[in-house]
Computed example of a mutant assay.
Amino acid sequence: MSKQYVLQAQVRELQGKGASRRLRNTGMVPAVIYGAGGEAQSISLRHNEMLRNLQEEGFYSQIITVDFGDRKEQVILRDLQRHPAKPIIMHADLQRIRDDEEIRVHVALHFLNDESAKGVKEQGGTVSHMISEVEVSCLPKNLPEFIEVDMINVEKGQILHLSDLKLPEGVSLPALALGEDHDNAIAAIH
């Protein structure tokens, strides 16, 4: 079961560089919510709450509830701007989602049994991970927290591709719909 992420938010009236700077000085992060047929809305989020959630891998790919007090909206994190030298979040872009509309999200790959894989343990190979996340397309209710890649039966010289992934029900990989040329390698044992 994936964790439920909730962010407390306030609608923000003042916009622009100066207003955003003053907002950040009060411990808030300027953000915008857009999509799902609604108007773009400028909001502010608590900086410490954002930093705490950003430490968790699932926050980048899971559904987030934005709580305005009188109403709630379901969103996913689309973009994040950070300060180049300080641990400060400069701005966040959140996209609204609808339960009946498919979304595309990058989901992390969790590699299992790297050390005990046949190609490593018996054949003296080394595991190489080519990618650490994949783009999936699904309805919000089917969104996986991560996708597991079991390396236990992979032999030396064998390459795993996107088409080898075991996807949960209702989840697809848009890259595979583009043809065989887009069936990229995800891991191998050399």
Rank of each mutant, 00 (worst) to 15 (best):
K3I: 15
Y5Q: 02
L7H: 06
L7V: 13
Q8V: 13
A9T: 06
A9R: 04
V11N: 11
R12I: 07
L14A: 15
L14N: 09
L14C: 05
G16Y: 02
G16H: 01
G16E: 00
G18D: 08
G18F: 05
G18P: 06
A19M: 05
A19I: 00
S20Y: 06
S20W: 04
S20K: 00
S20L: 02
R21D: 10
R22P: 00
R24L: 03
G27T: 04
M28T: 01
M28A: 09
V32P: 09
I33N: 04
Y34V: 05
G38W: 14
S42D: 02
S42Y: 08
I43H: 02
R46P: 03
H47T: 01
N48M: 13
N48R: 12
E49R: 01
L51W: 02
R52H: 09
R52P: 01
R52S: 15
R52C: 05
Q55H: 04
E57F: 02
E57K: 08
F59Y: 03
Y60M: 08
I64C: 10
I64K: 04
V66R: 03
F68T: 07
G69M: 11
D70Q: 06
R71Q: 13
E73F: 11
Q74A: 11
V75R: 05
R78H: 15
D79L: 15
R82C: 09
R82Y: 08
H83A: 07
P84Q: 12
P87R: 04
I88D: 03
I89W: 01
I89M: 06
I89F: 03
I89K: 03
L94E: 02
R96P: 00
R96A: 08
I97K: 04
R98N: 13
R98C: 13
D100H: 10
D100K: 10
E102A: 05
I103T: 07
I103H: 03
R104H: 01
R104S: 01
R104C: 03
V105W: 04
A108G: 08
A108N: 08
H110V: 09
S116I: 15
G119Y: 02
K121V: 12
G124F: 14
G124M: 10
G125R: 00
I131V: 09
V134R: 03
P140R: 11
K141M: 13
N142C: 12
L143D: 00
L143I: 08
E145H: 10
E145P: 06
E145G: 09
D150Y: 11
D150M: 14
M151K: 05
M151S: 06
I152Y: 07
E155D: 11
E155F: 06
K156C: 04
G157I: 07
Q158A: 15
L160G: 08
H161E: 12
L162T: 15
L162I: 14
S163D: 10
S163K: 12
D164G: 14
D164P: 14
L165K: 05
L165Y: 11
K166H: 12
K166D: 13
L167N: 04
P168R: 12
P168H: 13
E169C: 09
G170H: 09
L173N: 03
P174Q: 05
P174V: 07
P174W: 00
L178D: 14
L178H: 10
E180C: 12
D183H: 11
N184C: 15
A185E: 11
A185H: 07
A188G: 05
I189L: 09
